[in-house]
Amino acid sequence: MTAQAMPSTLRIGLSRGALELRTFMRDREAAAFTFAMPIVLMLIFGTIFKGEIKGTGVDFRQYFAAGIIASGIASTTFISLGVGIAQERDDGTLKRLYGMPMPPAAYFIGKTITALVLSVAETVVLFLLGHVMFGLNPPGTPERWFTFVWVFVAGVTVCTLLGIAVSSVPRSGRGAAAVLNVPYLVLQFISGVYFTFTELPKGVQDAGAVFPLKWICQGLRSALLPDTLLPVEPAHAWEHGRIALVLAAWAVAGFALCLTTFRWKRRDDG
């Protein structure tokens, strides 16, 4: 018997990414749930919120737009993956994959590709809406573009890892969306998406600062909004070093959680 070469991990991973995206496009519920939700929220709150943030010359709706872009990234990564993987575990998809000659890394490559493509698309749509409705402008300098890109990549990375890790928490695929939306909603309120972060009570700010969403919001603001906003930023500075540090720490923690908690089978399945 001649031993044929096994297909490479990358090739299977890419093929899985294509499969996931194709499925997503045809799955109206998932598309509506993870992709359309931030857009709907942007439209609703965009018509409610009014006025400048005092002393900064910045329209609050632009501040909100930067925050909802961060929320959109979390939705297409953390929520989408967390719910999707929990369902795949519950319905036996993961068990079938485990029984096939698929390198585990290929599964995660596929998920990462999906999360990245959807996050880019979500960000583009939200940005264009923000531009048309609230006059949000693209990063004005190469430095700000650079900031935008690294904060985006770091945000996607952290939320993807945490999404994979959190998929082990819900006991059933059915309940996954409900379980994951609780932290997601709370974090949006305490991370400076719907309210100017520094107007939140001190304790709430401290709590928000523990989690990555606050730092992704802040990083995106630093790329998209003028420095006149600095007086209402918590440290009166953009704190790029600290943003990078916090997101890196969460990425390491998320990766460790993925490695230690990921299961191919349901909890009740030995």
Binding site: A3, Q4, A5, M6, P7, R11, I12, S15, L19, R22, T23, R26, D27, D91, G92, T93, K95, R96, G99, M100, P101, M102
Partner: peptide, 27 residues
């Protein structure tokens, strides 16, 4: 392995599904 319960993605066609998984095997 054909196990008792396994769900494939209902959004995909039979041919897409079989072709995809064929790509996991050496021959």
């Amino acid at each position: 392995i054909v196990s008792q319960t396994s769900e494939e993605r209902p959004q995909l066609t039979v041919r897409e599904t079989v072709r995809h998984y064929a790509g996991y095997y050496p021959a």
